[in-house]
Each structure stands twice: as C-alpha cells, then as structure tokens.
Design a protein around this nucleic acid. Sequence first.
DNA 1: CGAAGGATTTTCT
DNA 2: GAAAATCCTTCGT
Length: 196
Amino acid sequence: MFDRSLLARPALDVAPLLLGARLISRGVTVRLTEVEAYLGADDPGSHGHRGKTARNAVMFGPPGHLYCYFTYGMHTCSNIVTGAEGTSSGVLLRAGEVIDGVDIARARRHTTKDDVDLARGPARLTVALGITLGDNGHDLQSGDIRLELASSPSAYEAGPRTGVSGHGGSDFFPWRFWIPGDPTVSPYRRSTRRKA
DNA sequence: CGAAGGATTTTCT
DNA sequence: GAAAATCCTTCGT
C-alpha cells in the first residue's frame, strides 16, 4: 500500500520516491534501481506530447496505475502513472533488482545467463514481473500487481535520458534517476548508446 | 569490454 | 509508410 497523493505530483518529483520502492507481481518482487520521468505535454519524447490517443489514455488518468505499451515489434515496457488526473506524466521503470521469486523470474526469461540481468532494462523488467499488455491500466493498490514505496528515501543520482530520439538536440534535461553503485545500473551508464 | 546491426508489430501521420 | 521510451547476438580490440 502507498499514499496515492504522493504520486499525484509531477513526474520529476515522484521519480526519486520510486527508487528503492518494491513492485510485487505474481510471485516476483523487484526493487527499483533506475527510473525515468516523462512529463507529457512539455516533453517531446513523451507519448503524451501529441495529445491523448487510444494507446496513452491511461497516462491521462489517475496516478498509481500501470501504463503498459508495446514497442519495437517485440517488447513491452511498463510505467507508473503520476501527476494529477488529466495530465499525461508518468515514470518509466528502467531497471530493478529481483529480490524475491528469482526462480520464477529466471523461468520467464530463460535467455538470461546472469541474475543481475533479470530486470535490467524496461522490457526485461516487464517480462520478469510477468506483466503483459493486458495489465494496462491496472491499479497498483489492489489485485495481482502492487507497489510498495520505500520506508525511507533512497540516495540517488540524476542524468540525461537515453534511448529517446525525439529530443531535438538542444533541450536536454536530467530526467533519468538511479541508485548509485547498484550493479543493475552501472553497466547502463557506460555503454549507453544514444541515437545520433 | 565496447560497438554495431538485425529482429518484428503497433501506432500515428 | 515511417518511426518507435528495446534486446540479443556477433564481431572487433
């Protein structure tokens, strides 16, 4: 359980709160180590930038829900909806550490050799938790998938966003947050490939 | 350890 | 018709 009003704030304020939080889904528990904020209307890289569509409608809804979308023809990514109802802000779950149900997570991702890679990456994390497109709009306060905020805030660092091509070149903001020193995060920082 | 390219379907212009 | 909030394999150093 968590305080929904905490998530009703802008994504940039909420993102640090989610670091260290736990996501419990169908036998697997993940501790979030890396997230990324999407602001919506003011954010060229956000799905909500061009207005409400059938796909992103959930992001315009109340906070504390799950927004899942399909991308690159083969992957599903998960977000936590933040901000007041009517705004399209959300936080993409970029990486996490599987702290319970490792066997189940490993079974879902049989191509993985290393346990540290089980939930390192948005699509990987989604698979490890057994989340599918059918879970779009799921309320994280009830049902199979639940969110638990950390009892105390975690230390974090912020940096530029990666993997987004629509940044226009000039305005670049540190919208990416991670827990420093965590093994599920550091490889990302070094070998991040940005599209030219 | 780091860099590069292919896979493959939904969504919006 | 083009692009996409990515992942995995293979090649090179």
